[in-house]
Simulated assay, not measured.
Amino acid sequence: MAPRTVLVTGAQSGIGRATALLLAQQGWRVGAFDLTVPDLAEAPEAAGAAVPIHCGRLDVTSTADWEQALTELTAGTGGVLDALVNNAGVISAGTFVEQDVDTHLRLVQVNVGGVIRGARLAHPYLLRSPQAHLLNLASASAMYGQPGLAVYGATKSAVKSLTEALDIEWRGTGITVTSLWPLFVRTAMVDEIKDLGTTRRLGVRLGPEDVARQVHRVLSGRRRVRSPHVMVGAQTRLAAPLTRMTPYWLNRQVIGWLNR
Rank of each mutant, 00 (worst) to 15 (best):
3 P>S: 14
5 T>K: 01
9 T>W: 01
12 Q>Y: 08
12 Q>K: 14
15 I>V: 14
19 T>Q: 12
20 A>T: 07
20 A>P: 03
20 A>I: 08
23 L>C: 08
24 A>M: 07
25 Q>W: 01
25 Q>K: 05
26 Q>V: 06
27 G>I: 12
31 G>L: 02
42 E>H: 14
42 E>D: 15
44 P>N: 09
45 E>D: 15
53 I>D: 03
54 H>D: 07
58 L>A: 06
61 T>R: 10
66 W>V: 02
66 W>R: 00
68 Q>I: 02
71 T>P: 00
73 L>I: 08
74 T>R: 05
77 T>H: 04
77 T>F: 01
79 G>Y: 05
94 G>Q: 06
95 T>G: 11
98 E>Q: 14
101 V>H: 05
103 T>N: 08
103 T>S: 07
106 R>Y: 00
111 N>T: 09
114 G>N: 05
117 R>A: 07
118 G>K: 03
119 A>V: 07
120 R>D: 01
123 H>W: 12
125 Y>W: 13
128 R>D: 06
129 S>V: 08
130 P>S: 09
132 A>E: 03
136 N>H: 12
136 N>V: 10
139 S>G: 09
141 S>G: 13
143 M>N: 12
146 Q>G: 08
163 T>L: 10
168 I>W: 00
169 E>N: 09
170 W>V: 05
172 G>Q: 10
175 I>D: 04
183 L>A: 15
184 F>I: 06
185 V>P: 03
185 V>T: 11
186 R>V: 04
186 R>N: 13
194 K>P: 05
195 D>Y: 08
195 D>V: 11
196 L>W: 04
201 R>N: 15
201 R>E: 15
202 L>I: 11
204 V>W: 07
210 D>F: 00
217 R>G: 10
219 L>V: 12
221 G>I: 10
223 R>V: 12
223 R>D: 14
223 R>S: 12
225 V>E: 14
226 R>K: 13
232 V>A: 04
234 A>F: 10
236 T>A: 09
250 L>Y: 11
253 Q>T: 12
253 Q>E: 11
256 G>V: 03
259 N>F: 11
